[in-house]
Amino acid sequence: MVAVEKKSKPRVGFFGMTSCKGCYFQFLLLGKKLIDIFDSLEIEHFWMLKEDNELGEFDIAIMDGAVSNKDNAEFVRKVREKSRYLIAYGTCACFGGIPALRNDVSGFHEKVYGKPIKLKPLQNVDPLDMHVKVDYHMVGCPVNEQELLNVLRDLLLGKRPGEPDYPVCVDCKKAGIRCLFKDGIPCMGPVTIGGCGAPCPASRSPCDGCRGKLPDANWGSEYDLMLEHGLTKDHIIQKFAKYARIAKPGRVKGK
């Protein structure tokens, strides 16, 4: 698989579905590094940066946000058809994220709006995966913009970028951060996908799991550790449900 032609600049499009647009902004926070990006890539579609946005053909489509209504679903399919490589950008796009919390509450729209509304909401807020094939899951709430740079560079080299598959603990150790568990603070690091550089633990704030659940996670042991450090069962369930979308943790038989 080669995402991009070497001679011409790859055509890149940024799109956003249902989200806070924080990941969208994260790209802009790259600051001076944006010059490198603009030199190597042609940004053809970006609602926040450009007035003229045409839905042409793209080499790389970067889609932020979850699919929460029929318009989202149609748009996502259209973009997928026109793109060679699709990045699900941010935890909303990869897992449903914060908007997906409404999946756990029935009659959500009536509760909030009091009557049916025009948006044609789907039964559930979905990650992009449930509607189109995704080539790369860039997790994070928000994303780590350095990861975006690395993925774009890999695509320029004709490489298939690998998604991080190790816990946040590895990021903490690399950055020389003292483990929060040692100070009695329960942290979601061991069960969360790493690659963020652990900015929250660096500020002595426990990882909240915003990068989604790590397939190798030992949920049972994490649950026990959180109980041991003073969290109630309800609080732990809330934490596990927020980004990881784990419905019933409990004591899981360790692998």
Binding site: I37, L149, R153, L157, C179, D216
Partner: peptide
């Protein structure tokens, strides 16, 4: 019990396993 956080291997003075990773700027 193990959560595979790799803290043990990280903090061990005789752990040495390494990867060779190609890195370049965009």
């Amino acid at each position: 019990q193990c959560v595979s956080c790799a803290s043990c291997t990280f903090s061990c003075p005789t752990c040495y396993c390494f990867s060779l990773v190609h890195d370049s700027g965009i």
